[in-house]
Design a protein around this nucleic acid. Sequence first.
DNA 1: CTAAACAGTGGAGTGCGGTCCAAGGTCAAG
DNA 2: CTTGACCTTGGACCGCACTCCACTGTTTAG
Lengths: 132, 132
Amino acid sequence: MRIGELATRVGLSRDALRFYEQVGILSSDRLANGYRDYPPEAVPWLEYVRTAQALGFSLAEIAEHGEELTEASDQAAALSALFADKVRIIDTRMTELAALRAELTARAGTDCPLRKQPTPVARAGRRSGFPG
Amino acid sequence: MRIGELATRVGLSRDALRFYEQVGILSSDRLANGYRDYPPEAVPWLEYVRTAQALGFSLAEIAEHGEELTEASDQAAALSALFADKVRIIDTRMTELAALRAELTARAGTDCPLRKQPTPVARAGRRSGFPG
DNA sequence: CTAAACAGTGGAGTGCGGTCCAAGGTCAAG
DNA sequence: CTTGACCTTGGACCGCACTCCACTGTTTAG
């Protein structure tokens, strides 16, 4: 598959794919004419990359994981471990969000939700410390 | 309070504070000598900014919210509404994370977790489509 | 009086994750 | 043989959120 087809299949720009190659996330064979050639497996791989990105992994981290994977003797086990790692990261993130949520709901109900927040700006004449 | 004190109090650099002023998140009065002068309320305001950032709001968005706040006739109500908005955003995010988590755990247990993921690279000779 | 610690400005640089562009090569259809 | 779609490269540029720097002014302690 050439770059244009891959790009439309995964919903990325050709530029993005070339960029991914630069940063070590994606590799390609070359056709006789120099065009990049991708195996069908590139599609699920890029879907995986997108998932990882959605989880907050940087492209550098994803590339690292990819290398670990290619070096692992047991691919399936390595990937399972990677997934387990991600699940732990998700759990951490969800916990943080839950804490923030609790804080916000607690304050939203109060008379002055600003106990620890920006004191209401005086009705007239914006004071400093705030956007203005 | 001058910039240095505020910076150490909120754990930001002086440069960051000046940057926040540039982008409309923070304002300051000036002393006779030209030094920035901040009211004590700047501290909780910046804590709020950090919270909002943690929730994934861009500084531009935070600045926007800040303006809405300064323009609101009922400050407390406006902030409560803002908080409620954020709680909804958190909920959405948590739902997304839960979905990803479910997908990952489902796959991590399987024989070949790659049904929709990068097909295992051949043991020898890395194929293209993967990090390489 | 001087040195240090603080403040000001403008502008350049950073890292991330790309996008855009110009100049050119390749290939199939008409 | 030309047109158009596709591909190549390198390099410039973008937005975000800062950070660092040089150079200058102010204040305070010894």
